[in-house]
Simulated scan of single mutants.
Amino acid sequence: MNVDHFSNWLFTEGKATKTIESYVNDVKGFQSYLQEKLKDKPVLSRFSFVRYKEHLIKEGYAFSTINKKINSLKVYNDFLTTKGVVNELFIQLRKDRIKY
């Protein structure tokens, strides 16, 4: 599933255009990170998510920005689960969001 499928799914779910663009950009950033740093195929897993979150913290992103990206990836995880690409939820907002 590529980000175009994700974008179309968000649209059918009734998300606003700006929200869709934001989610898609966050997912593309995650996929870019995986390809550059981990040399992995950009697949969402608990391991890849935790590494990405650590990377964002290390790079000095604001907590609110990191939490926004976490939210986007949670929605992406929901999409992948709905489509049967993955069979579990790797991101739990209560546990994974940064508290500040």
Rank of each mutant, 00 (worst) to 15 (best):
M1G: 00
M1F: 00
N2M: 01
V3N: 00
D4R: 04
D4G: 03
D4H: 08
H5T: 00
F6M: 04
N8L: 08
W9K: 02
L10S: 09
F11D: 05
E13T: 05
E13Q: 10
G14E: 05
A16Q: 02
K18Y: 11
I20L: 11
I20T: 05
E21G: 01
E21R: 10
E21V: 02
E21H: 04
S22I: 07
Y23K: 07
Y23S: 06
V24A: 08
N25I: 03
V27Y: 09
K28R: 08
G29V: 02
F30R: 03
Q31V: 03
Q31E: 11
S32Q: 04
Y33A: 10
L34E: 05
Q35G: 08
E36P: 01
K37D: 04
K37S: 04
K37F: 13
L38R: 11
L38Y: 00
K39H: 15
D40E: 13
K41P: 00
P42A: 00
P42N: 00
V43Y: 10
V43Q: 06
L44A: 15
L44M: 15
S45N: 10
S45F: 07
R46G: 07
F47W: 10
F47H: 12
F47L: 11
F47T: 10
F47Q: 07
F49R: 01
F49Y: 06
V50C: 00
V50Y: 07
Y52T: 11
K53S: 09
H55G: 04
K58Q: 12
K58G: 06
E59I: 03
E59S: 06
G60D: 02
G60P: 01
F63L: 07
F63N: 11
S64Y: 06
S64E: 11
S64G: 07
S64W: 05
I66C: 00
N67R: 12
N67E: 06
K68H: 14
K69C: 02
I70D: 01
I70A: 01
N71Y: 09
S72H: 06
S72E: 09
S72Y: 05
S72A: 14
L73Q: 07
K74P: 05
K74I: 05
V75P: 04
V75F: 08
V75Y: 02
Y76V: 13
N77C: 13
D78P: 06
F79C: 13
L80P: 14
L80E: 11
T81F: 07
T82W: 09
K83D: 09
K83M: 14
K83S: 08
K83F: 15
G84Q: 13
G84N: 12
V85C: 06
V85M: 09
V86I: 15
N87E: 14
E88N: 11
F90H: 15
F90A: 08
I91A: 08
I91Y: 13
Q92L: 10
R94H: 13
R94V: 14
K95L: 09
K95I: 06
D96C: 09
D96S: 12
D96Q: 08
D96Y: 02
R97C: 04
R97I: 01
R97Q: 06
K99I: 15
K99R: 15
Y100W: 11
